[in-house]
Design a protein around this nucleic acid. Structure first.
Lengths: 196, 196
DNA sequence: CTACCATGTGAACAAGTATTCACATGAGGT
DNA sequence: ACCTCATGTGAATACTTGTTCACATGGTAG
């Protein structure tokens, strides 16, 4: 039998195991059985700590939201120049995706969007905040003359986020058939060339 | 009993029904039962025309590939100016997404990416062609002076496609909480402002 | 020490999945 | 006219899923 631990610790373990399953096999494979296997515990024990699959999904959404969107807000609040902030946010996001492929999979999963509306709305809100954060940094960049004034802050922010998202998609669908880091650097250099 | 029709017609009906199911309820809900219901035929009859679910997925991927990526190639081969071509491809893609929400859902589905590798590779190839097509148009735009020479054709093409993809995602996740057409127009105007 | 209760688990269950099969039915070639 | 075979279907099958339950076990409050 498994060593006993407090519910708080087990919850964390279960969420991490779930994210790992999504990263390896997608949301479709995120079954109680798979989570139990990845976490090294019985299926029944999962119900000891979570009321059901829905609650695991919600916990996963919170975990992801804090990891990605929270980090961007922290960077944006820093004291560097707008362009440096943008660059840090961009590459930080790329790194998180590389390390936890389950994150973009979960966020882009139509299973979540259509089968768990309340969670989708939670994610939608966080994405909205993320876009607003980037929009603010771009506005500051325009005000300081680092970014050309013809750029529309919100739409430019959407373009930047679109680049990141498409990169994550191509990485998954093409089975990691290109090197993430150089690809991200090329995209970033081109972004700079376009907006300045 | 259902009126008898040739396999070729039934195949088309089944693929369309499948796309409709994905559009309404996502890839997760793409079950034989749901397809049969949407197509108005028995489940067993689906196996009369397709060897199994895998073949339906493959047919759907081909159908989508022809609809989206084929159209872009046709536009690119036309005789208008590069910028006009890009604009037509962009809004044509947006329109297709609006009319068939199942298309982006299927293409972005991790179920397809991870559970049906051969189909994912088919899609990956078509996306690659799509990117190359747009890259070619952008290169022509630079050569003709419509697009500034600092722009890197391939990375700019990826940015454009990223804009489209992110718009499709936000539309799904936010439950169509914004107007697609005006949003697309704002994104396009900003793109023009950035690249010219 | 000991009794309680949170934690852990194998087995069982109902619901839903893809797929197969034995059997109808009717359109089209002879 | 008829007969053949492609087309259509309800029922059955084997499997997976989420969830529950009766029962073990061991840390810890008294």
């Amino acid at each position: 039998m498994l060593e006993k631990k407090s519910t708080r610790i087990r919850k964390e373990e279960i969420v991490r195991a779930a994210l790992e399953v999504v990263g390896k096999s997608g949301v479709r494979a995120l079954t109680i059985s798979a989570i139990a296997g990845s976490a090294g515990m019985s299926e029944a024990n999962i119900y000891r700590h979570f009321g059901g699959k829905e609650q695991i999904f919600a916990a996963l959404a919170d975990y992801i939201g804090d990891a990605v969107m929270g980090k961007a807000a922290t960077i944006a609040a820093g004291s560097r120049s707008p362009l440096e902030k943008l660059e840090t946010i961009f590459f930080s996001h790329i790194s998180i995706i590389a390390e936890h492929p389950g994150i973009p999979r979960f966020v882009f999963s139509d299973d979540v969007h259509l089968g768990h509306r309340n969670i989708a709305e939670n994610l939608s809100l966080r994405i909205g905040n993320y876009i607003e954060t980037i929009t603010g940094v771009i506005s500051a960049g325009i005000a300081e003359g680092q970014i050309k004034p013809e750029a529309s802050p919100r739409e430019t922010a959407l373009s930047l986020l679109g680049m990141i998202q498409l990169t994550a998609l191509r990485l998954t669908i093409g089975n990691a058939s290109f090197e993430l880091r150089p690809e991200a650097e090329k995209l970033w250099r081109n972004f700079i060339a376009l907006v300045s």
